[in-house]
Structure formats: C-alpha cells, structure tokens
C-alpha cells in the first residue's frame, strides 16, 4: 500500500498545483448558489426581459432542487469528466508514469490512487454545492419542508462514482484525452438509453439521475432506488477492476 498512499499524496498535490480542484469546486459551488436564486427570481428575470412573458405558477423550493439536479447531472458531471479526462493521457504523453512503474510501483496503485483522488474531490465539490443549494433554499423558502432531500442527493452522488469508473476504463483504453471523454460520454448515453427500456429501467443507474425530484416530492419511494444504487455500485467496482486489469497489460 506504500505506493498507493504515496501516489494519492502526489495526485492531491497535482490537483492543487494545476488548479483542477479549484476549477471543479468553483463550477459546483456556482451551481449550488445559482440553483435556488435562479428558481426564485426567474419570474422577475423573465418580466424584466419582456413585459409579455409571465410565469403561470409561483416558484417553489422544489424548483430550486430541479435546477440543482439538472445542473449537476449535466454540466457538473461533464466538468468532472472533462477535468479528469487528462489524468492518464498526460502521464502517457510525457512518459512520467514509466519512471514510477519501473521502480516497482504496482500498476493497480496508479489507477486506485487516481480514482480515489478524483472521487474525493468530486465528493467535496458535490456536497459543497448541495450545502449551498440547501442553505439558499431554506433562506428563500423558510416555511417549506421537503422529505428525503439528502437521500435524493446521495443517489446522484453515487452516479458520480460510476462516471469516474467508466472514465478510468476510457483513460486506460485510449491514450488521447478526447477519446477517453468521448468513450465516457458514449457509455453514459448507452446507460441512459438502456434506462428507458422498461424491464431494465428499474435497475438502471439512469434512474438515479432523473427520479431525484420524484423522491423529494414524494412521488417515488426510497425503496425504488435500492436496485439502481446496487447496479451503480456493482458497475463502478466492475469498471474499476476492468481498468486495473487492462492497465496491468498496457504497453507504456
């Protein structure tokens, strides 16, 4: 485990030095702040833009969470994939990994360390964004009580681990950043498409990205999320193991 911990430390330092973490945190925190404000002031914004435009219903706290899930599952996770898409391609092109691997650093430690750091930084950014959305929503709609808010966020957070796991497979398979990102995007699209086919929908991780609001508003029950969560966890672990297996026999 020496190699793993040493490489985790190196990855943390690198993410600070190349500002990757700060960019990610800024994107997530911006969405955390914007979600509640956009939901609350959209009627005023629309009215200011055009006198003829008017919202038919008054904004509610649920709208703030709708914004949050839309932004984080779309742009937020895209930012994670784009920023971490370079995590192995940069090392391939420069040849920096060769020196570490030829020193006896187990190859699995490289993958596990990169995954750990990306997952931790994604987690910090994600829950930072959640905390801001939660705080501003409570401030702007003080009388609203919503159930399962944290549970709904947990569901989306778990999908983040799955995307990172797919990204790791992509980064091991392809040397170019663009191809790794494209692979992850493609796999996410496939998961989404499979998620709309009825017999698979109950198990699909896609469920975790689209049913969060239903859970908060009480339309969906927490038990509906058990199978998709299990599928996501199994797929994340399988993806990571696949990435390690492929990397163990990758020409460097």
């Amino acid at each position: 485990m020496n190699g793993y911990f040493a490489f985790v430390k190196k990855e943390f330092t690198e993410n600070m030095k190349n500002h990757r973490f700060f960019i990610l945190l800024a994107v997530f925190l911006a969405f955390g702040m914007m979600s509640a404000f956009l939901a609350r002031f959209t009627p005023e914004i629309l009215a200011a833009l055009s006198a003829e435009m008017e919202m038919t219903s008054k904004p509610v706290a649920l709208d703030a969470w709708k914004q949050f899930y839309k932004n984080i599952s779309g742009v937020g996770f895209s930012a994670v994939i784009i920023l971490y898409g370079t995590c192995l391609s940069g090392e391939y092109s420069k040849g920096t990994l060769v020196l570490m691997v030829t020193k006896g650093l187990p190859r699995k430690d490289v993958i596990l360390a990169k995954y750990t750091v990306a997952a931790v930084l994604m987690t910090i950014s994600f829950w930072g964004s959640y905390a801001l959305t939660y705080g501003y929503t409570a401030l702007l709609w003080p009388d609203t009580r919503l159930s399962n808010v944290a549970l709904a966020a947990c569901a989306l957070w778990i999908v983040g681990f799955l995307y990172l796991s797919i990204l790791m497979v992509g980064c091991v398979l392809f040397r170019q950043t663009f191809t790794s990102i494209l692979f992850t995007g493609g796999m996410a699209a496939v998961i989404s498409l499979l998620g709309i086919i009825e017999p698979l929908a109950r198990f699909s991780p896609f469920h975790l990205t689209i049913k969060n609001i239903d859970l908060i508003s009480g339309i969906a029950a927490p038990s509906d999320f058990i199978m998709p969560v299990l599928t996501s966890v199994v797929m994340s672990i399988s993806g990571l193991l696949l990435a390690i297996k492929l990397f163990n026999s990758k020409a460097l």
Binding site: N2, G3, F5, A6, F7, K9, K10, T13, E14, K17, N18, K94, G95, T96, V98, L99, M100, K103, G104, L105
Partner: peptide
C-alpha cells in the same frame, strides 16, 4: 529513459521523496 520526464511542479528532493515512498 532517453528523455526523462518528471512532475515539473516538484523539486528534485520532493521527486526523490516520492520515489522513496513508492518503494516503501
């Protein structure tokens, strides 16, 4: 290697420290 490449943000001491930690 013919063109050795390192983590550019590290100093030589930090890099060798990483090497040492990697091998335990």
């Amino acid at each position: 290697p013919d063109v050795p490449e390192f983590y550019n943000y590290m100093t030589p001491t930090q890099y060798l420290e990483l090497c040492g930690k990697v091998i335990g």
